[in-house]
Design a protein around this nucleic acid. Structure first.
Length: 550
RNA sequence: GCGCCCGUAGCUCAGCGGAUUAGAGUAUUGGCCUCCGAAGCCAAGGGUCGUGGGUUCGAAUCCCGCCGGGCGCGCCA
């Protein structure tokens, strides 16, 4: 069932087409800043003025005249009005605004969700931390962003796979093993025999102790190093898993970088690159002409020692994504990896196997800076050089951490003030939204009536300014979700929920809901329950709970 | 130096090219609980949208220069 807005927009589109058949102009309905300009307005006449070489007001009049009958017939809004330079103002009828309440109550948890049978399978890859230490706050931001993005895409009908990629094959893993081995042999960080660039965090000691407790005897030879490596990687993978579970994030697929080698995919990728004719030998190494694809310099594929650079398994991994049928892939990564974007895309294009340009999509997020006492916190005892996800959850709780981390545009630097988060934990934005949800639950309990009666409520009595504003806000939920999914911008959900909760609290304080008049009482309750449902649906996308009591 | 991103209220941040007063939160100040949950509401103060040009009927928004900040510029991952 089309919304009143869509109905009016479709009529206006027809009208514009009659007047300017060739103009490629969208009829965008905007929300005017000032209420006296109506519920929606369009500047389409101003945009057409240039194309048609006519005055905008005249064009607006033509549009209004030619659509008058359809507008009246649809019954969604009052007669259109022209204002200012040539804006067309649209004022919806009361019943058009409040019908959303009934729709929400009928749709329930599926309000805002759309079916898209033709949508391609989507994969969202995020976190993808190396198993060399506990997850840091940057991973937390990534987990919050990636999981919300995945949920957002699911809401728009996509089949989404959440995937985690472990870089378990590189030099840093060897470094991890050496560090644990040294610790297990009683060597302190920085002491004699400590590996160059070894990991100094306390967790290394924990792993070493665990290893020994389970009978491990780390001798200074390679066979034992391999045992240490396996133990340490398993230990950290499990620990990262526990943190993610605590954060409420679940992955569908885990892929190991080592499997790219084991399954011959790295070799196949190299073969493909060579076959493409885009490679050349220089200084004993094999290079790929990534500059043909916008990179600022060519990249080494095979080092002079015969091993491959990390970018080869990366390309192989993305080929596997494509071959698994993911026509749309979104990688959530820190901006510190942004140089990989060009490189991976270049590698995929060079292979020339039908992967479209610009594959995959990226959401790059700035790193998180943690502040305490006016100074940046760079050190956590356990991790050594960074603040962990676990610290964050312990400090502010999962709901607050997730809501907070997702409520900023990905590409802005995130300053997380611990003092504020600790001191004001009860005033954190998430509680404000959850509180609105709990308040409605409480009212329903007090009312004691049958909620099944609410969807059939007569809504004609909802006509105060705040009630109509709330209804309007509710009707924007689906389009907000669709825009957020399109823009890969989950922060829009958090901002929407904050605004909706704000309008609800304001309404609650202005009007009594449980009034004597039964028809009015039921109508207001229906509106409140619609708010509750929308908040619950939005919070669910963000992985934040919607408590009935707080 | 080169590339990408960011500069909006004291602080943290929204803001699809649109309508004489650019929005939230927080902080500050002053009000509101015999009344559905005060984790709430109402009100006030606080801005050359970094800066200088350009495009346009119209710019915080698009383009260019400059200033300031972040990240990246390995035969590391």
């Amino acid at each position: 069932m089309p919304s009143p807005k869509d109905t009016v927009q479709a009529i206006l589109c027809d009208g514009v087409r009659k007047i300017a058949p060739d103009a490629m102009i969208e009829v965008a309905l905007e929300r005017p800043r000032h209420p006296e300009h109506g519920d929606y307005a369009t500047s389409v006449a101003l945009q057409l003025a240039k194309v048609l070489g006519r005055k905008p007001r005249e064009i607006a009049e033509d549009i209004v005249k030619s659509t008058r009958q359809e507008i009246a017939g649809a019954g969604a809004c009052e007669p259109l009005q022209i204002a200012g330079a040539g804006f067309i103002n649209i004022r919806l009828k009361q019943s058009s605004k409040t019908q959303i309440v009934r729709q929400i109550l009928q749709a329930g948890a599926s309000f805002g969700r759309v079916q898209a049978p033709a949508a391609p399978p989507v994969q969202v890859e995020f976190v993808s931390a190396n198993p060399t230490g506990p997850l840091h706050v940057g991973h937390g931001r990534q987990a919050a962003l990636g999981d919300a993005l995945a949920a957002l895409l699911e809401s728009q009908g996509y089949q989404v796979t959440r995937e985690f990629y472990y870089n378990d094959a590189g030099a840093q893993i060897r470094n991890l093993a050496l560090s644990v081995q040294a610790r297990a042999q009683g060597i302190e960080p920085g002491g004699a025999g400590w590996p160059v660039d070894g990991y100094a965090g306390d967790y290394i000691r924990e792993i070493a102790e665990d290893f020994r407790a389970q009978g491990g005897k780390p001798q200074d030879d390679l066979s034992d190093l391999e045992a240490v490596r396996k133990f340490a990687v398993a230990f950290l993978r499990q620990e990262q898993d526990l943190d993610l579970r605590k954060f409420g994030v679940k992955f569908d697929v885990y892929t190991l970088e080592s499997s790219m080698y084991a399954e011959g995919k790295v070799a196949a990728a190299v073969q493909g690159l060579v076959a493409s004719g885009k490679t050349y030998e220089k200084d004993g190494a094999l290079w790929l002409r990534t500059t043909d694809y916008g990179d600022d310099k060519d990249r080494v594929v095979r080092k002079s020692d015969g091993s491959y650079t990390y970018f080869v398994p990366d390309v192989a991994y993305h080929v596997s994504k494509w071959q698994r049928g993911f026509a749309k892939v979104i990688n959530v990564q820190g901006t510190d990896h942004h140089s990989a974007v060009t490189r991976v895309r270049a590698g995929l294009q060079a292979l020339d196997i039908g992967i479209p340009q610009g594959y995959p999509d990226y959401v790059l997020h700035s790193l998180v800076k943690v502040m305490r006492g006016g100074a940046e916190v760079k050190i956590s005892k356990r991790a050594g050089s960074y603040v962990t996800v676990r610290d964050l959850i312990d400090w502010v709780g999962r709901d607050a951490a997730r809501f907070f981390l997702v409520s900023r545009k990905a590409d802005t630097e995130f300053v997380f003030d611990i003092d504020l988060a600790l001191a004001k934990s009860e005033e954190n934005p998430v509680y404000y939204v959850q509180y609105a949800h709990a308040r409605v639950c409480s009212m329903l309990a007090q009312w004691g009536g049958d909620p099944a009666a609410l969807p059939g409520a007569e809504l004609g009595s909802l006509n105060s300014g705040k009630e109509l504003d709330l209804a309007q806000r509710l009707s924007e939920f689906p389009e907000m979700l669709s825009a957020a999914a399109k823009e890969l911008a989950p922060h829009a959900v958090a901002f929407y929920l904050r605004a909706l909760a704000g309008e609800f609290h304001s309404y609650y304080n202005a009007e009594r809901i449980l009034v004597e008049d039964e028809a009015l009482r039921v109508a207001r309750l229906a509106l409140c329950v619609a708010v509750r449902q929308t908040i619950a649906n939005g919070l669910a996308l963000l992985g934040v709970s919607a408590p009935e009591k707080m």
